[in-house]
């Protein structure tokens, strides 16, 4: 089975955000970058499928700056077979990212294309869906179980009040959620082996923007809060404030 895993390089979730000089992006100084955490579930699932089948090929693909080769190498160290970096030094909107991915994906003939359910930076949960429509492939997001059955895949996901199981023909595009598996860490042996694995760098085809960033700013500061008191004796005053001041109960 041939599987593509699409990864995004994002700021570590522990990052304290500062706004860059252009007022439209974050200041990259001192920011640590990581593979977006949901994408790790996608990579792990691809490796599990390959291991279970005893054959197959897992390729990680990312759209990003040259520096994203670090995240691609990490993925190769974890176990992917090959990597593709679609170079984009400027920030792209979701449609531009999707079109860049389609440029690489369209001729590969993957049986399965996996994404994380959303990136943890822009959180749009849409690039996978846009790729699916461009390639006329079925799409299911937020999956927490996956079972290949011949030319079909059965996936499970949580709904508001329960769970649903969905059957989907292959090839398909799936968005992976936490709960699907426990991602492994790269081993020293894996990291050594990753150095010899192929990484291809390609250029993104230019696509017109759909969204234009006007400004990125820090969120408005929360009004100063108050400590109502200490211990259970403060509860009455808290309840009064919630009723009379905040008017939420």
């Amino acid at each position: 089975m041939k599987i593509a895993v699409c990864l995004k390089r994002v700021p570590d979730t522990a990052t304290r955000v500062r706004i860059g000089g252009d007022g439209k992006s974050i200041d990259p100084a001192d920011v640590q970058y990581i593979i977006s955490p949901y994408d790790e579930f996608a990579l792990e699932e691809a490796l599990l499928i390959r291991e279970k089948a005893g054959e197959g090929e897992v390729t990680v693909i990312t759209v990003g700056p040259e520096a994203a080769s670090k995240e691609v190498r990490t993925a190769l160290g974890i176990g992917a077979d090959a990597g593709v970096i679609i170079q984009a030094e400027v920030a792209l909107d979701p449609r531009q990212i999707a079109c860049a991915l389609v440029g690489v994906l369209k001729d590969r003939g993957d049986d399965l294309i996996l994404f994380g359910r959303q990136s943890v930076d822009s959180q749009g949960a849409q690039v996978a869906a846009l790729v699916a429509r461009e390639m006329s492939l079925p799409f299911v997001n937020d999956i927490i179980s996956l079972e290949i059955d011949g030319a079909k895949v059965r996936v499970g996901r949580d709904t508001d009040g329960g769970r649903e199981v969905i059957e989907c023909p292959l090839p398909a595009i799936l968005g992976c959620d936490k709960g699907l598996n426990d991602p492994r860490y790269p081993s020293l042996k894996g990291i050594m082996a990753a150095r010899k694995k192929p990484v291809e760098t390609v250029e993104a085809q230019p696509v017109e923007a759909s969204l234009e960033t006007i400004e990125l700013s820090l969120p408005p500061a929360r009004p100063e809060g108050k400590i109502v008191g200490e211990g259970p004796d403060a509860v009455s005053e808290l309840v009064r404030l919630l009723r009379e001041e905040a008017k939420v109960i």
């Binding site: 990052t15 943890v120 759909s210 969204l211 234009e212 990125l216």
Partner: peptide, 16 residues
Amino acid sequence: RPVLAGKAHLTQRVLV
């Protein structure tokens, strides 16, 4: 829209 789970706010113009 908030991005980075609310660590920053993004103002955008929809061009399409």
